[in-house]
Design a protein around this nucleic acid. Sequence first.
DNA 1: TCTCATATTTAGAATTATTCTAAGGTGTTG
DNA 2: CAACACCTTAGAATAATTCTAAATATGAGA
Lengths: 146, 146
Amino acid sequence: MKTVTQDRPYSQTLTRLREAGLRPTRQRLALGRLLFDGGDRHVTAEALHEEAQAAGVSVSLATVYNTLHQFTEAHLLREVVVDSARTYFDTNVSDHHHFFLENSGSLMDIDGNKIAITGLPQAPDGTDVARVDVIVRLQGTPRAAE
Amino acid sequence: MKTVTQDRPYSQTLTRLREAGLRPTRQRLALGRLLFDGGDRHVTAEALHEEAQAAGVSVSLATVYNTLHQFTEAHLLREVVVDSARTYFDTNVSDHHHFFLENSGSLMDIDGNKIAITGLPQAPDGTDVARVDVIVRLQGTPRAAE
DNA sequence: TCTCATATTTAGAATTATTCTAAGGTGTTG
DNA sequence: CAACACCTTAGAATAATTCTAAATATGAGA
Ligand SMILES: [Mn+2]
Ligand SMILES: [Mn+2]
Ligand SMILES: [Zn+2]
Ligand SMILES: [Zn+2]
């Protein structure tokens, strides 16, 4: 058996970009690796930009925004609206919901097929359900921090 | 029987403000009446400001923001997060959820005790559930507009 | 009713996340 | 390698919201 010699075997970012019709530029590859290597993540543009800098990848904030939006259009990411001040991007594009820790601003996934919503009225005439989002807002209990 | 001679009997805005410990200023009374007379509403600061202008009430946008936040602290309003670009304030402070029409940016209430969510994992250690929000995102079907 | 301390309003500046512009760099394909 | 479309980016622009600090209104008491 031969050893895989690619530098990042995990996420197959290059392949994903190709399939999405996006040129595999240095910036998109680097951001894609930060996003898709390892487990699911929820990031803001600013946070990903800082992470890239810290990793020694030179990429502008404008490109981070461009890339996050392009990845979202390509369904490699989805947006999560939980805070009217910042946009979160989610590498988990499967059907799921969220815990939102209002203190820290962090998100945790809730598997979409573990929960059920019953009694939803039907969508008004002339509309279709694009998505149902459940957000469980959490407050930290300082006591537990001891 | 005597006829009620108050100019706006509907919302008892004056009483509400007193109970909340807020001075019934001209601006707060006017905004309170716009918000609470008539049925439940979902407004943005900008929209309420324009509505006030149109009603001949002179109030600054800063005061609209101040007032919306004070009303929210006093639980006369609550915030609804559905769009990362603008904040909605909701005059319905009872337990309920929302349809969000992404095209028009409008919200419709879903009665909280008509729907049930089962299978929610318990909140992580050291946290408490502050609220559960269900947002049903709707896309208009242009066909129906004919 | 007048006074005065305090709460409120407001114009305009500041902040912050995000988007836009337009100029130069890069990936792909023949 | 040429050529062109696609990409990146610095910096300006935008837009919602917040802040500042000066002017004004409110209400408790005299
Ligand atoms: Mn905002
Ligand atoms: Mn924004
Ligand atoms: Zn997620
Ligand atoms: Zn509502």
